[in-house]
């Protein structure tokens, strides 16, 4: 029984590890935080291995857990911090390439940060994890309809925030602040 559980968990772990680490790295400011989120997410999954869905749905389920872990992580200031050195190092690799810190990206980032947590998460799941509405519904435990409506509103709010930040869209799909000539 335990072997069966272990095999099942390990299969899900191997399948989802790349995506969950990416998920955490995209949302955490430091590799240590990302490592914590990854570790806690999989620890929760192991504890609840009997509820772990099979196949592709497992990754969606893990996104949902990671989202909760992340929210909890951001809240807890005094939490006991455990360090897993190899994991830190691996996550740190993901932070190695500094992002293009151009002025347009800064402006977009600023606009993005004005959104609520929920709005950011919905937009991120689409843009970063490439999930469709149904997958988001599964990950977040929402109905498809709720996802559709919330996503629509999130996009509108972000669009407004971008407009306020004077970020304009140009024909070659690059974003530039209005004051910067192409």
């Amino acid at each position: 029984m335990n072997d069966e559980r272990l095999a099942r968990f390990e299969a899900v772990y191997n399948q989802a590890y790349g995506r969950i680490t990416a998920y955490a790295a995209r949302r955490c400011d430091s590799p240590q935080d990302a490592a914590d989120v990854v570790a806690e997410t999989f620890a929760v999954a192991w504890r609840r291995v009997d509820e772990l869905p099979a196949g592709a749905e497992a990754t969606l389920w893990l996104y949902g857990v990671a989202r909760k872990v992340l929210a909890n992580h951001h809240r807890g200031d005094n939490r006991r911090r455990a360090r897993m050195v190899e994991l830190d190092a691996e996550l740190a690799d993901l932070y190695g390439d500094s992002l293009d810190s151009g002025i347009e990206r800064a402006a977009i980032g600023q606009a993005f940060r004005t959104l609520s947590d929920d709005d950011r998460e919905l937009l991120s799941l689409v843009a970063w994890e490439g999930l469709d509405r149904e997958e988001i519904a599964t990950a977040l435990g929402l109905s498809r309809n709720a996802v559709r409506i919330r996503l629509h509103r999130a996009r509108k709010r972000f669009s407004r925030a971008l407009a306020e930040a004077d970020v304009h869209f140009t024909s070659d799909s690059r974003f530039v602040p209005a004051e910067r000539p192409l």
Binding site: G18, R19, Y23, A25, I108, A111, F112, R155, F175
Partner: peptide, 22 residues
């Protein structure tokens, strides 16, 4: 403005890419 493309430009790990190696 495509908001989704704008969000994509913020991704630390490229959209769709994997993070760590299992």
């Amino acid at each position: 403005i495509d908001e989704i493309d704008a969000v994509k430009s913020l991704a630390r790990v490229a959209p769709g890419a994997q993070g760590g190696d299992p």
